[in-house]
Design a protein around this nucleic acid. Structure first.
Lengths: 335, 335
DNA sequence: CTGTTAGCGCCTTCAG
DNA sequence: CTGAAGGCGCTAACAG
């Protein structure tokens, strides 16, 4: 069922059918012809072929969205926000997951570009990927969201992770903690670097004793939170810090699991703060203090910037940075 | 940068270039020509155009995946599983979210079909959508996953929600509970209907007193869990049931929030069981007893069935049903 | 082994 | 207002 079929059914030309069916062009067609065409299209169950349209027009109406891990709950609102922005222009996000693996990210970019997406939103970058992304940006509108690339000229829509980290530190310091450990996310991911810097700067500024582990999490997931917490117990079990800042809620939950197993109580023995204010995190035991991540706003902004970038590929939209907000709960308390 | 550009750069024909670059066809080309072509392709930064390829071949290498709500954590493993199965054939899932709105589902189907996806996996069906999906299945390989349509001939990859519901009931009955309430998910979604039936049948079989609320959740989300729990308190506050089965973990968490606010303690006053065994649900207060949902297996199977359906569009793959597993934790206890 | 030819379905000139 | 013609980039069939 193609334009041609409708055309021959009506004894007119396919181009007329095309015009009649395109809201932008239907004014070029006599009212009653347009009516007959629409009737026939419905009658014959016509459904336009956007593949062919894309080839002809050179735009697909699709935006590629790269995320590291769909199972991390903070990403759903981001995708949601992107989809909301795109819906206005009848565009659809095509979401691909990289499992936080740089090689997979590279092949995802490749895949998306060969599918001629109109733009790419990369919400799962590692520093390793910077070159690949910059190269891709030469061919297609591309922006970086969520996970920033500090030394890149790419347009970025980010959250102020530095302030978020500082905020977490300030909170713990105000509660009187002076020996504090950090469970860090991957060292080649923008958010975690910024969270770390903000946290560390604030701690140093107040002369707190910041306990460093020799490793970061390979991925910001629960299992890595467990591993690092275990390491903390092994190295500093005799003289535990009184507070822990986990770089995200998943890692915080991992830490809680391990500490509980070792009969270290939170918040009695140690306070824990997380990041993202994930859904349900207010119901865990104990309800977790966490820095809220404005996922939906980030998503909406990223979608909007992508649309701008498509309209003016050489424009360099400002990018945006959204502020954090601290949600204090019972997992942190006065020392 | 097209095949033609490479061809003219090398003084050969585009079709030769096409063959050289297609692993399936490159054996038709002389070794050294193929080599020269690959070298030129790399040198010139050629990247195949899958839009054009799709138009010519009639397949896009894309499978549409419809989900109700990305924020429901149980869906991530399903998508993951689908992506895993598709990766073997170099296919990519295109995920769209309907916000659990039947109208949005309809337009999503339309969108996906006009993009000529090779198949559709609908993991977010409501009963209302049955006709639309059956109609779509006449044009494109389509299967229903996760949320079944009991009266449909469509291929389905499901979880055995009936047994899961029965399992939850049996657990509560074995603990000695005889007054039990159910917080039901939407009445037009297969899973929740089956969970309800399994649960109810088992309760009736053992002569338990099953307390019915006059409403179900409009959507299986935390807020609806709160609303229904509130309703339960208002109607049966004087004589609360001693156990509650929430149709999923999000609703269970909503119920916990409301009960805690009213100083009804779980599990002392009331036991609560949920469904899905969501990540982190073992860390909430109290750790939630839940029926595990085999999301990744469902996803893998759905992906595999989709591929079968593409290979043989008139075949009618059997579909599959995966069993539930109960994870007992501290939110349920002997009466 | 390689080139030629002919579209896939659509949309956009350019003529009428 | 409508039709005819051409081509987006690729690949399959057919000839050499």
């Amino acid at each position: 069922m193609t334009l041609k079929d409708i055309a021959s059914n009506l004894g007119i030309d396919a181009s007329t059918v095309s015009r009649a069916l395109d809201p932008e062009k239907s004014h070029l067609v006599r009212e009653d012809t347009a009516l007959r065409v629409r009737e026939a299209a419905k009658r014959l169950g016509y459904r336009g072929d956007r593949v062919a349209g894309a080839l002809r027009r050179g735009v697909t109406g699709t935006i590629g969205v790269i995320v590291a891990d769909l199972a991390n709950p903070f990403i759903a609102p981001v995708i949601h926000g992107i989809a909301q922005s795109l819906a206005k222009e009848q565009m659809l996000p095509m979401v691909v997951e990289t499992n936080d693996d740089p090689a997979e990210l590279e092949s995802s970019v490749d895949h998306l570009l060969s599918r001629r997406v109109d733009a790419v939103i990369c919400a799962g970058a590692r520093f390793t990927n910077q070159e690949v992304l910059e190269e891709a940006a030469r061919h297609t509108p591309l922006l970086v969201a969520v996970r920033g690339l500090p030394n890149s000229g790419l347009t970025q829509v980010l959250h102020d992770d530095y302030s978020g980290g500082a905020m977490a530190a300030r909170h713990l310091l105000e509660l009187g903690h002076t020996r504090i450990a950090e469970l860090r996310g991957p060292a080649d991911v923008g958010n975690f670097v910024a969270r770390h810097q903000g946290f560390r700067d604030e701690c140093e500024h107040h002369g707190a004793d910041l306990i460093q582990l020799p490793e970061q999490g390979d991925r910001p997931i629960r299992e890595e939170g467990e591993r690092l917490a275990q390491m903390l117990l092994e190295r500093h079990g005799g003289d535990l810090p009184t507070a822990i800042f986990a770089h995200n809620d998943l890692m915080a939950v991992g830490a809680l699991t391990v500490l509980r197993r070792s009969e270290v109580s939170c918040p009695t023995d140690v306070s824990i703060a997380g990041y993202n204010d994930s859904p349900m995190i207010d119901q865990i035991d104990p309800p977790l203090t966490s820095v809220a991540y404005p996922g939906i706003e980030i998503g909406r902004a990223a979608g909007a910037v992508a649309l701008e970038l498509i309209k003016d590929p050489d424009g360099c939209p400002a990018g945006e940075v959204f502020p954090p907000q601290l949600r204090v709960r019972r997992s942190t308390r006065r020392k």
